[in-house]
Amino acid sequence: MRLLVINPNTSIGVTARIKEAADSAALPGDRFTTVCPAFGPELIVSQEDAEQAARAVVETVKAYKAPCDGIILASFGNTGAEAVRALRPDIPVIGIATAAFSIVGALGGPFGIVTFGRSLVPGLTEKAVEAGLGARLIATEAVETRDFGDPGTVQKRYASEIGQLCAQMHQRGATCVVMGGGPLAGLAATLAPTCPVPLIDGTQGAINIMRTVAVHRSAEVTV
């Protein structure tokens, strides 16, 4: 399976975290290319950031000429998804929020979202509501900081605090917890031993969904 994984923001550190999470979900024969745009915000927080990042994502897709079976957009804004689908209608395109909330829907029950900065809470909550899961969302909780620094290092610096938030979500009745934001890619596997409910990684969830689609398409070709 050949996938293009795009980090819609320009943080090299976040791109590296996303690449690690994606590569850890690879099977023999898979080829994943993880990139970030040449321009745009280092982290997507405002609507203006999202609009600029969406334009950058489209330009990134246009510039990518290698064979590709699918595109993953590794931001919880599903940044640029509709424009990329219009550009590449021949392959599936999925954002990590769509992937994460699809898993939440399949698991059932109440859930929580945890993230690394208070400024991200409204946008993450909005995405859950857009996915039709607002009534099941217990809360979106964040590390108590508004100046979280380098987004590429937040999961290392705040792993303990985020783990505590996950445990608190379980205590409040969550049947699963979503890791909110591309910079937390791969953290779910690290924290899983400390939390008795599933921790959902949108990047790895998107890869698994792409794998299901690829198997289905392969079966169609065979028939």
Rank of each mutant, 00 (worst) to 15 (best):
M1A: 11
R2K: 12
L3W: 15
N7V: 11
N7T: 12
S11V: 11
S11T: 12
S11C: 15
I12S: 09
G13P: 11
V14N: 08
T15G: 01
T15H: 05
A16D: 14
R17K: 15
I18Y: 08
I18M: 01
K19E: 12
K19A: 15
E20P: 04
A22I: 05
D23N: 09
S24W: 12
A25N: 03
P28Q: 03
G29A: 03
T33V: 15
T33N: 00
T34K: 03
A38H: 10
F39Y: 10
G40Q: 09
E42R: 14
I44C: 02
S46L: 08
S46A: 09
E48H: 09
D49F: 04
Q52S: 10
A53F: 07
R55M: 14
V58P: 02
C68F: 01
G70V: 09
I71R: 01
A74M: 03
S75H: 13
F76L: 00
F76Q: 04
N78G: 00
T79C: 02
G80S: 04
L87D: 00
R88K: 13
I91N: 04
P92L: 06
V93A: 04
V93W: 02
G95S: 08
G95T: 00
I96W: 14
A97N: 03
A99W: 08
F101M: 15
F101T: 10
F101R: 08
F101L: 15
S102M: 12
S102P: 07
S102K: 14
S102C: 06
I103Y: 01
I103M: 13
I103S: 05
G105R: 10
G108Y: 00
G108V: 00
P110E: 13
F111H: 12
I113H: 13
V114S: 07
T115I: 00
T115L: 00
R118H: 14
V121H: 11
V121F: 05
G123C: 01
T125M: 11
T125W: 05
A128Y: 02
V129S: 07
G134M: 00
R136H: 14
A139G: 06
T140L: 05
T140I: 07
A142V: 07
V143C: 03
T145I: 08
R146H: 10
D150I: 02
P151D: 07
T153H: 03
T153F: 00
S160A: 13
E161C: 02
I162G: 01
I162H: 04
Q164D: 15
C166Q: 10
A167T: 08
M169R: 15
A174G: 12
A174F: 02
T175H: 11
C176S: 15
C176N: 07
V177E: 06
M179Q: 05
M179K: 10
G180T: 08
G182M: 09
G182L: 09
P183L: 06
P183W: 09
P183M: 02
L184E: 03
G186F: 10
L187K: 07
A188N: 02
A188Q: 06
A189M: 06
T190R: 14
L191F: 13
L191E: 05
P198C: 09
G202E: 03
G202W: 01
A206G: 01
I207C: 04
I207K: 02
N208Q: 14
I209K: 02
I209C: 10
M210E: 04
T212V: 13
V213I: 15
V213W: 11
V213K: 06
A214K: 06
A214T: 12
A214Q: 09
H216G: 11
H216C: 13
S218R: 14
A219F: 09
A219L: 15
V221R: 14
V223S: 11
V223Q: 12
